[in-house]
């Protein structure tokens, strides 16, 4: 009896008010805890505005030069956009294949299977080729039907341009995947954002000559910048850009070899330190 009377004396908690501050603080605190331990999340806050500013800032510099032939520039912009999308899709092709396995908690099943991780990479490359063909096919058709722009106006040089960009995309995709396997899902943002780090120095929409000196030096070591310079050369009637493509493929080879080496090192490390079963769960 005394217990009952005691329990009756306990204060009755009221329902949480719509204007209550503490639940809001709880939700904010949950995000702050997340950001306190996550460098990639902090980077993301500053990353996109900075990259957008650089890409559009360099384009503005180019247009301000006053020497720009508008019709040719419009062609170069659309061509650049379509080719850039191929680079982006091929990088995504690799990274997303791995992420899909991580999200579905299936990666470990694949590691146990009698295939090497390199089988998975080459399988992802094939998937990437299919995705690039489909998405770019649609984009090229729409550019032609809506804006009367044909990417095929680049002629035969289109083939090595695409190849140069796809190989760079593969290399970045493999590197990103290696970082995700090494650092876990914290590094997942790289899968979506790493390619855009290269955009300001890829000279997609403006010539390399517009870039400040430091950026020009970095651009030299980015295969895409040589491809896009080559594209502009073709569009301005300067013939087949052997020189640009030569550099693009040479640097591509270095990127690709470096990416495979990094991936191999990450797997070797995982064999020593353990591979998380819960990666993705």
């Amino acid at each position: 009896m005394s217990e009952i009377s005691e329990s009756r004396e306990l204060p009755i908690r009221r329902p949480v008010s719509l204007l209550a501050i503490r639940p809001l603080a709880g939700i904010l605190l949950r995000q702050l805890y997340l950001y306190r331990r996550s460098l990639p999340r902090w980077m993301e806050i500053f990353y996109w505005p900075l990259l957008d500013l650089l890409v559009w800032g360099f384009l503005t510099l180019y247009l301000k030069q006053g020497t720009v032939h508008m019709a040719g520039t419009a062609q170069a912009l659309l061509g650049g956009l379509l080719l850039w999308d191929m680079l982006y899709r091929s990088q995504q092709g690799i990274s997303v294949v791995f992420l899909e396995e991580i999200w579905s908690r299936n990666l470990y099943n694949m590691m146990v299977a009698p295939v090497t991780p390199f089988h998975i990479i080459f399988g992802a490359m094939l998937t990437g080729i299919l995705k690039v063909s489909l998405s770019s096919g649609v984009a090229v058709f729409l550019a032609w039907s809506l804006f009367s722009y044909s990417l095929f106006s680049l002629g035969l040089s289109l083939v090595p341009f695409v190849l140069g960009l796809v190989v760079m995309g593969w290399a970045l995709g493999i590197m990103t995947t290696a970082l995700i396997l090494r650092f876990g899902q914290e590094a997942e943002v790289l899968a979506w954002g790493v390619i855009f780090l290269f955009q300001p120095v890829s000279a997609v929409f403006n010539p390399v000559s517009v870039l400040p000196a430091g950026f020009r030096q970095v651009a030299f070591f980015v295969p895409a910048s040589h491809v896009f310079e080559g594209m502009r050369a073709v569009l301005s009637g300067k013939g087949f850009p052997w020189h640009d493509l030569g550099w693009a493929f040479l640097i591509d080879a270095v990127y690709f070899a470096g990416a495979l080496y990094l991936f191999h090192r990450v797997l070797e490390r995982a064999r020593r330190t353990g591979f998380s079963l819960k990666l993705g769960s």
Binding site: E100, E101, S104, R105, N106, Y108, N109, V112, A113, P114, T116, L277, K278, S281
Partner: peptide, 20 residues
Amino acid sequence: RRKIAHRINYASTDLSLPYS
């Protein structure tokens, strides 16, 4: 490992298969 990987297999409640 590659020489015998086809002769072993593994399952765990920590793992799943693609949901889609």
